[in-house]
Amino acid sequence: MAKSLIRNTINGRRYGFIVPADDVVAGTFAAAALDGEYSIYLQTGESGTETEAAVLEYTITGKNNAGAKTTFSFYAKPSVTENDIHTALIEKTFNGVKFDEIYIISARSVIG
């Protein structure tokens, strides 16, 4: 099945979405239904491997000396250790909180 990416610019904002159609049908749809400027990109092939890479999903909480906290999650390569994360985040500021203390709430393996 053909796939096309439509990039639509309206009032300086750019939007993108995929439609299950070739570039001719996607162009007809865009001309009839979209305002502003648009570009159509046809998918011509796929690359990559069938094997999906495993990553680690970390949830951390950072706390400053005044007691303010913030929590967020991110994905990291499996080779990244808790010490690497601590070193990378200590004394950095996220959401207005300087990380004087870092707590790793969870670390779990995620495939694909």
Rank of each mutant, 00 (worst) to 15 (best):
G62S: 06
G62D: 09
G62C: 08
G62K: 06
G62A: 11
K63F: 13
K63M: 11
K63V: 12
K63W: 13
N64E: 08
N64C: 12
N64L: 12
N64D: 11
N65A: 09
N65D: 10
A66N: 14
A66P: 14
A66L: 15
G67I: 03
G67N: 02
G67S: 03
G67Y: 02
A68D: 14
K69F: 03
K69V: 06
T70G: 01
T70I: 01
T70N: 01
T71N: 08
T71W: 03
T71G: 08
T71R: 12
T71S: 12
F72T: 01
F72C: 02
F72D: 01
F72V: 01
F72G: 01
S73L: 04
F74K: 03
F74G: 05
F74C: 05
F74A: 04
Y75P: 03
Y75H: 07
A76V: 14
A76H: 09
A76C: 12
K77A: 06
K77H: 05
K77L: 04
K77T: 04
K77W: 04
K77C: 02
K77N: 08
K77Q: 08
S79G: 10
S79C: 07
V80H: 01
V80Q: 01
T81C: 08
T81N: 10
T81W: 06
T81Q: 08
E82K: 10
E82F: 07
E82D: 15
N83L: 07
N83Y: 04
N83K: 05
D84H: 12
D84C: 09
D84L: 07
D84S: 11
D84P: 14
I85Q: 09
I85C: 10
I85E: 06
I85L: 13
H86R: 14
T87F: 14
T87E: 15
T87S: 11
A88Y: 06
A88P: 06
L89H: 00
L89A: 00
I90L: 12
E91H: 09
E91V: 05
K92R: 15
K92C: 04
K92D: 04
T93F: 10
T93A: 11
T93Y: 11
T93M: 11
F94W: 02
F94D: 00
N95I: 11
N95A: 09
